[in-house]
Design a protein around this nucleic acid. Structure first.
Lengths: 240, 240
DNA sequence: TGTACATCAGTGAACGCGCGTTCACTGATGTAC
DNA sequence: TGTACATCAGTGAACGCGCGTTCACTGATGTAC
């Protein structure tokens, strides 16, 4: 067999993708708990039981959607980050943040699927962990590089709980060598802020108070970069 | 009639409350889109059509739950704030934050109902706006008092988009006289962070990375108070 | 190149379930005289 | 205090709908000789 696929295998791969696409569209209309195998089958002109040749159950289809969503937002973040010069820390932070928000706005239902309320009765399997951490990894890499490049200003941090310092030190040793516990704590807080503001906008809580969510978002990028202590890298050639 | 209620009226009020309570419990099991009039009726030993004597439709019952949830978290925030000395700005910020998180942890499904993914197909009526802003009003009052008490440190804020400054000035004039646009922007960002970190914890995104969410939360209270510029009031008598 | 058999995608009917909402009704509670 | 009528809570049956999943089946595709 090797690399060559039989007609059957090609058909299977294609239909699997079509099922997932239809399911994604179904999600938009009804939300995660309204995802319906029968509706998906109907849209593809199949009989509902045919779906079972491709997915053993509704939950498995949902899992695929969740993994895809994590992968999509993760990839968006990775590409945005990769499009910046390595030493342009502030630019990378801004680009990554915008990528997350941009993807969320373009795919609100998929965003809600992974960052919104948990789906009742659904238990996420282990397979989602890897894709789920892609965005985090971008932020981790960014802070890591900032530390290596001397692009991390020390902040006058008010004293934190000792347990936090200890935990942050443990985490830093694990994934962010060279980053102090105060900075790591700030990074985690900034990270929750990023998803907080995106959720706030997407779930309609800014309506009626803030004029333009994008302007607020840009402001929050600037403020949180400063909050973490990100600054222009010393090594960067400034040419103006 | 006057203040005296007839037996019928008392029965009606009581049953209305019982229906709402049962609906709340139903929410826990199934999530908002799984809220079922029939299940509620069953739990109360009624026939499903009897619910229509109390609520004209499923959506109306859902609206009641949403309003109740906003009122509950709003009241928790108000009480926490009210329990502090007026000039203890930092204490009020911490107490209010803890109240929001505490309520969310105690009522995760109601929290998800109002701050999680929008319920598909449901459109919130105007009546929810008032209750929804109770928590915000507490934070607004807090920042307002901080400004009046000289408990707002000026931060060296990186330059914000002009549109943001303009919008923040407009908002400040409206509800926060005497507060500068930079500070107001910081307050809004802190406010999104508060709900961001609570959602992150509740929706399971901290599992596997952070040891103790409460410790992180306490750290975020301290860091965000500093971020906004909240400090001990000059007028406060420190007795140690 | 041809044949026999195995694999597997898709069908169609069925099971058993739950849902929101409507409607004509019964009988208890409340009101006006 | 008693009677006639109006109000309204709750019933039970029904409508029409959608759902996930199972199962025996048909017929096309793939494989081994």
């Amino acid at each position: 067999m090797g690399a060559v696929q039989t007609a059957r295998q090609r058909a299977r791969a294609e239909l699997t993708r079509e099922i997932v696409d239809a399911a994604r569209r179904n999600l938009v209309a009804e939300g995660p708990s309204g995802l319906s195998l029968r509706a998906v089958a109907r849209e593809l002109g199949m009989v509902s039981s045919a779906i079972y040749r491709y997915f053993p159950s509704r939950d498995d289809l949902l899992t695929t959607l969740i993994i895809d969503a994590y992968d999509a937002v993760g990839e968006a973040a990775e590409r945005a980050d990769a499009g910046c010069a390595r030493e342009d820390i502030i630019g990378r932070w801004a680009a990554t943040s915008r990528a997350v928000r941009g993807w969320a706005i373009a795919h609100p239902h998929e965003y809600a699927l992974v960052y919104g309320s948990p789906v009742p009765g659904y238990r996420a399997p282990e397979d989602t962990i890897g894709p789920a951490s892609r965005v985090t990894n971008v932020l981790v890499g960014l802070v890591c590089d900032a530390a290596a490049l001397g692009a991390l200003a020390a902040r006058a941090t008010p004293s934190l709980p000792v347990a936090m310092v200890a935990d942050a030190r443990r985490l830093a040793d694990l994934v962010l060598p060279g980053v102090g516990p105060e900075t790591l704590t700030r990074a985690i807080v900034a990270w929750t802020q990023l998803f907080g503001i995106v959720s706030y906008e997407l779930f309609g809580h800014l309506v009626g108070s803030v004029e333009d969510p994008e302007v607020l978002f840009e402001s929050s990028i600037v403020l949180m970069a400063d909050f973490i202590g990100l600054r222009e890298s010393r090594r960067r050639k400034v040419s103006r």
